[in-house]
C-alpha cells in the first residue's frame, strides 16, 4: 500500500492505496464518485475523461499515485451547486445523450475543448476533437450540436473556475 493525496473537486483527499489503483478506480471505488465510467481497457472510448490540473485526461490510463498533489475535476464537480455548468445544460437542451454512459466523459472533453479552442468553435473542429470519445447511441449529431451551444453559453456565463 502507498499513500496518496490530491484535490478532487476542490476537496483534499488522502488515502492508502494499492499502487496498481488507476485514477478512475480511485475515484469510483475509494471516493465513490461513480460518474466517471469505464468503457474500455485501451484508452480509446473516453468514458473516463476527467480534468487533471485543468486538462482532459483518460483516468483509466493514469495511476492514482501519479496524481500526487494534483487537482482533479470530475463530472460531479462541474456544476455550481444545483446550477448546471453551461455544457451540462447544453447536453440536456440539445438531447446530446441517450443512455448517459459516455456522457460524463463527453462533457468533460467538451469543456476542455472549449477551454482550448474557444467558444466559437466550428462543427468540423468539434467532430475532430471528439476523436477520443465513443458514443454508441446518438450518432454524435446532437452531441456536436450540444457542444457548439455549450461553447457559446460558456462564453456568456461568468467563467467559473470550477475547482480547477
Amino acid at each position: 500500500m502507498a499513500a496518496v493525496s490530491m484535490t478532487v473537486n476542490g476537496r483534499s483527499v488522502t488515502a492508502d492505496i494499492d499502487p496498481r489503483t488507476l485514477l478512475v478506480q480511485f475515484l469510483r471505488e475509494d471516493l465513490r464518485l461513480t460518474g466517471t465510467h469505464v468503457g474500455c481497457d485501451t484508452s480509446q472510448c473516453g468514458a473516463c475523461v476527467v480534468h487533471l490540473d485543468g486538462k482532459a485526461v483518460k483516468a483509466c490510463t493514469i495511476l492514482a499515485l501519479q496524481c500526487e498533489g494534483a487537482h482533479v475535476t470530475t463530472i460531479e464537480g462541474l456544476a455550481n451547486g444545483t446550477e448546471l455548468h453551461p455544457m451540462q445544460a447544453a447536453f440536456r437542451e440539445h438531447h446530446g445523450l441517450q443512455c448517459g454512459f459516455c456522457t460524463p466523459g463527453m462533457i468533460m472533453t467538451a469543456v476542455d475543448l472549449v477551454n482550448r479552442k474557444g467558444s466559437d468553435v466550428d462543427e468540423h473542429t468539434i467532430r475532430h476533437e471528439l476523436e477520443g470519445n465513443l458514443c454508441r447511441c446518438t450518432g454524435y449529431h446532437n452531441i456536436v450540436k450540444a457542444i457548439a451551444a455549450g461553447a457559446r453559453a460558456m462564453a456568456q456565463a461568468p467563467l467559473r473556475q470550477a475547482a480547477e
Partner: peptide
C-alpha cells in the same frame, strides 16, 4: 420535451450496475 432523466446523467449521478 427535454428529458427528465438527463439531470442525473449530466451530473454523473446515474446509477449503473457497476456503480452499485
Amino acid at each position: 420535451v427535454r428529458r427528465k432523466e438527463d439531470q442525473r446523467f449530466v451530473t454523473g449521478t446515474g446509477r449503473y450496475v457497476d456503480d452499485l
